[in-house]
Amino acid sequence: MARPRAIESRRAITLILFAAFALSLAGVDWSDGVFRPRGVGAIADTLGALFRPDLSPDLLRTAAAAAWQTLVYAVAGLTVALLIAIPLGVVASGTIARSRLGAVTQIGSARAVLAFFRAIHELVWALLLVAAIGLSPMAAVLALGIPYGGILGRIYSELLQDVPQAPLDALRRSGASEWRVFLFGRLPMALPDMVSYTFYRLECGIRSAAVLGWVGLGGLGFQVQIALEDLAYSRVWTFLWVLVVMVVLVDLWSSQVRRRLAP
């Protein structure tokens, strides 16, 4: 397989990667030194507390409540994401259009909306939404739901497009309308992968929801921020370990689902 062109392009990639990395290193301001004056001590504090989290019952109760709130945001955000992704994803796949022109306009406009939704990070959405509608759970849920809807919608549209065509043609020849072809052919074939990807996003959603706390919306990120302001590293790590356990558990769950859905 060692075609000359493949080797050429590999060399080009290697060169580009190294050049880009070197250029970005030049972009760092090294004049102040790498570390803060007391930075090296902070490394010791941070790492020292890694395996000595504060496990007092009171703090664990706080952590459990924060974890629940983070889970609530993640799951509610995913609901909003589904409400965005299912209709827009179907339109963006262009599979329910009646004419060729209709398909092109549907794909183009729905894709543009989805791309805009997912281009902005959830925390930026959160900052904007808090500025717009105030500190309410709606801000957190929408901040998570909008970019996740953009991501899920794009994936859904691609999955709906990529199903095998032969069964669809069979349905069409037996007289089914495009809507029925979609409902009884396309959708059932794409559904396992759609469910699989949605479960994968749940894992990411937990992490994102934890971060939303930073803008003042509660949850694990908020608690970490408070603990950091007190420089209480052992409390910081309590919350971070709770987050790690939560992410690993959800990861296990979603990977089990995905393994069973894999073709």
Partner: peptide, 10 residues
């Protein structure tokens, strides 16, 4: 598992 923002805060 620890998000970028929290690593940055540390």
């Amino acid at each position: 598992s620890v998000p970028e923002l929290i690593w940055a805060m540390l």
